[in-house]
Design a protein around this nucleic acid. Sequence first.
RNA 1: GGGGGCGUGGCGGAAUUGGCAUACGCAGCGGACUUAAAAUCCGCCGCCGCAAGGCUUGUGGGUUCGAGUCCCACCGCCCCUACCA
Length: 858
Amino acid sequence: MKEYNPHEIEPRWQKVWEETEQYKMEGDASKPKKYVLEMFPYPSGDPHMGHARNYSIGDVIARYNKMRGYDVLHPMGWDAFGLPAENAAIKHNGHPATWTYGNIETQRSVFKRMGLSYDWDRTVRTCDKEYYRWGQWIFLKMWEMGLVERRSNPVNWCESCHTVLANEQVTEGVCWRCGNPVERRELEQWYFKITDYAQELLDDLDKLEGWPERVKQMQANWIGRSEGAEVDFVLCDKDGNAPAEPTADDIITVFTTRADTLFGCSFFVLAPEYKGLKELVAGSEQEAAVLDLIAASEKVSAVERAQGDREKHGVFTGRYVVNPINGQKVPVWVADYVVADYGTGAVMAVPCGDQRDFEFARKYDLPIVPIILMEDEIAAMVEESGKTRDEVIAQFSAQTVDWAEAHAAEGTLVQSGKYTGMMGGKHSAGEEAIVADLEAAGTGRRKVEFRLRDWLISRQRYWGNPIPAIYCDDCGIVPVPYEDLPVELPMDLDITKGEQLADHKEFVECTCPKCGKPARRETDTMDTFTCSSWYYLRYCDPHNDQAPFDRELVNRYMPVDQYIGGIEHAILHLLYSRFFTKVLRDAGMLDFDEPFTNLLCQGMVKDENGETMSKSKGNVVSPVKMMDAYGADAVRTYILFMAPPDKDLDWNEAGLGGIYRFLNRVWRIVYDLMGQAGEETLYQPGSESQAAEAAKVLLRERHRVVGKATDDFERNNFNTAISAMMELANAAGDYLRKAAPAARDAELGRDVAETLVKLLSPMAAHMTEELWHTVLGHEDSVHEQAWPEFDPEKAKADEVELAVQINGKVKARITVAADAAEDAIIETALEAAANAIGDKTVVKKIVIPGRLVNIVVK
RNA sequence: GGGGGCGUGGCGGAAUUGGCAUACGCAGCGGACUUAAAAUCCGCCGCCGCAAGGCUUGUGGGUUCGAGUCCCACCGCCCCUACCA
């Protein structure tokens, strides 16, 4: 018997697989397709355990499905543009491309060493011009469709990365990449109008049955649909007089989900960034104070903004607006608790019904008029006054409150004109009635707001996909014609000297495609998330030089059947990709609505103390070092065995040794089952001869385990699938120990050996291939074999042990024939539990076949 | 503040539809083999108890013949999100 030596086996088979193009996709249209995809990596350096886990999961799913008879598409590529390459280039005095392509090669060699079954011919690298030209093409297409806009807005600026960021790339006020606080700046930037798709992006979440609930919830929260109404307030002139015939310019509109509280509006608030605010106060005595507040709020960092209970600051503008519901004039304030980019940037303040307005009113001594009462308050008033409930509500006339906080919940409206007595709250009768009346009067209308903002896609960075646009003094902003693509990223630029695209004369200077006059090229590049929003489509047709992809091919392989990646992309990449898919569908380029049918978010790999691994903590476990010690098969199998794929796991090397021992045991068992173990057989002369029984158990286990493992593979429960294989190995070991080599059943031996090897082949790809050839004597690859069949009948035992419970507590055990009648089972059970029953009366007998008998006594 | 999730031995975890809690593995303990060690193989291994037996899935209650699983309250931990009107 040869010894198990992964270090010899693994490179040898990797070479064979490469030479025979083992994992090149079949493209066999007669088979059903299966697209298995792992989120492609950023080429940041050596792969870490998170990568190893992600790609082990994907590889097992791909290999399993191939054995199940699918035409499997399983590609790999690199998300290769991005800022770290620029930082590394500066640090190492080189070029971002050198660092990027070098890291890609490093990662590729590690992935090959892991034995991952990729069709390398389909590799996509987003920094290749053969790829990014089609990103530009899609940009132009979107421009044509009216989904690209360049406009001025307050944006998130990261000084450390020296670029603007999308909303999705700022969490708790800090930049997602470098962790530095972002600033607000008013800048002109490029946007994708993702908000045009907000409703569909929300609605279609319901179609994604194969997605984790929490990811869908996170996307729904991010899209943030909110139903309410717009209400028009009329601005009074500087002397506080309402215009007799207000024009559009005199109207300030607010968005509210609580139109029912309109009677409680005692002031009005604008965001500091509110457009037209400066004109509003120009020349007034309040002007200086308002400008001070604007300046102060600009300085407040986003980190501070993100902190929960911040102190609210505001000043009176000196102006008034008229409340359309009751004609009341209320003062207009400016305050930093109103955000400019949600709703209209203006709010009606109802301090009695909104905690923020309440706090603000308390601080600045503004009126808090109670217009909503809770049921317990009404009950107390009824009790105290002796009046009826209706009288209490109708006669309520307090002008201020002694509450500790606002009444934000549902309650009864008071002091609200004809709406008094109606229920108030979101979607309440009172709200419906008031909005209906506002609509009739033309001073309000139903409105749905979304929290989702348009996607800011321009970046002031070199290492990215150039935006194909040209500035012409005469023609304005002009798209680069399709036939001029790609706009190539110049490579002769020294970013170590701080050069950016704008400094590159030959790149910037161009002619206007419309009028032919000298013009300037756009020097911003696209957010790298635009590159990763469609790469999965390109894999279907990676070498196409006529189009981003062929429609037929994409329609055949898409959508991705199983997508695997980290939860950190729950919003970012997964939302953007859904958006791109819908846009390209509307462009007529594909025929489906959603890109990813099933999504698996793998858990994080942490160190043995449950801490996240990081270079600064010095607790990083290298997959390469682990493979050096135990081989790729053991590392792959172990990482799947440790925990279900979606749970975090704490790395522990001792367990890896256990898996290595398991692979070793399988190795010896296969040799032994095939009669090739010689002296090293597990047979123990002198052990009791129960060979026949062990053979029976082994046959049963062979069928039971295939059934169990198949089910587990279908549910991505790889940890329990491996447990089941261990059980089969244990049964085989028991058989081998008890049955003398000469007396063994050769047919059973080969069946079990081949079954075990096939079951294990998606994980331990090299070892099983070696056994398949050398011990089992096959010429073809184990990875080309059909998944083993099983017979549920053969998985059944002829006798079963049942627990006998008295009132739900196990008191005895009985063994009965598997097909025993219920009466017979009860009789046996009553006998076995006679002591426990004693002189009590049996009131009920419950038999759960194959499991237990419960006898209820009194 | 809002939303979501989790809590099972010394450890990772299993229990798929409400049906024998702790499968499988790690660690530990004992044994075989060995001059010895490693490797391998066998056995034990939730807690209390000498035992009979009793107890046990964060805590307390409920539904049920039967609850880790369903319902209610509480405690603890984790993740996401946030002046969103």
